[in-house]
Design a binder for these strands. Structure first.
Lengths: 141, 141
DNA sequence: TATTTAAATGCAACTTAGTTGCAAATATAA
DNA sequence: TTATATTTGCAACTAAGTTGCATTTAAATA
């Protein structure tokens, strides 16, 4: 695992201090192939850290382009790492996401591009979110 | 205004009782060209009706295909009438929606079709939501 | 290595969205 | 007009997210 080094670099390169909590949060994201919400993280963290701290870590990561918002279903906002297949910059909203109705997990569909569309000049589009819903393989049976 | 007759028919044809509250809720949807959330409706209703009743009316309308979910931004779920340009059946998710970051209003983009996409067989897609975000004309200045 | 300080954390308290159970009220069919 | 299933209101709850403030800590620098 050289995740440790990676995480250190990631935080440092964005001018964020490397704290145990932030490190553990980023490790969680690296260890999962689906998006996580603040409460998912609180539940998975070893020590019982305050919800507020997790919310603040997530916002901060989002602002710095380390995480992107993957979906906002009824179970709260889920975030995903701007990772492997994401370009280093402008990772937001480039791919679609899939939310399972059964387990409520959110997956990045990194090969499904968010389509570019023409919209009435009445609206200035700054973000696009393309979220599919249904059942994932695990919940299929 | 023959909205009244229309509303009566709509409720009756879905086996829903025509109550003052439901009538007023549907009138509100007919009078607005953007989507409304439960709290929007509570605020706009003349008499101070209970939030719970509004939530229940909305769920019921959604179940019966009278309303569709337009967006779920941080300000709560917004609903829109399955109206004029919606086909009478299967109105859900057929078009994109636009959420303004400034006023948080959600508009139906009835001419922007939600694209059909190919997804890994790992996922069974049952719903699709295509939501654009940005600034609407009113908030432009 | 010790000191300093801006940034990060924890705590308490709050807001807002949404839900559930149950009793009272009411729309409609008979 | 009455009977009944539906709808409504109330109270109480959960869960997500936020804010202010005091305390702690990472890391720059002396």
């Amino acid at each position: 695992m050289d995740n440790m080094k990676l995480i250190g670099d990631l935080l440092h390169s964005h001018g964020l201090k490397k704290t145990p909590i932030r490190t553990e949060v980023l490790e969680l994201f690296m260890d999962h192939d689906f998006a996580l919400s603040a409460s998912d993280i609180v539940a998975k963290m070893t020590a019982g850290h305050d919800r507020v701290t997790i919310y603040r870590a997530l916002s901060s990561f989002e602002e710095h382009g380390i995480l992107h918002r993957a979906s906002e279903d009824g179970q709260g906002t889920k975030y995903a790492l701007c990772g492997h297949k994401c370009p280093d910059e402008q990772h937001t909203d480039k791919h679609a996401h899939f939310v399972c109705d059964e387990c409520h997990q959110t997956y990045c569909l990194e090969d499904v591009q968010v389509p570019e569309v023409e919209v009435s000049s009445e609206f200035t589009v700054e973000r696009t979110s393309f979220v599919l819903g249904g059942i994932c393989r695990q919940c299929q049976q």
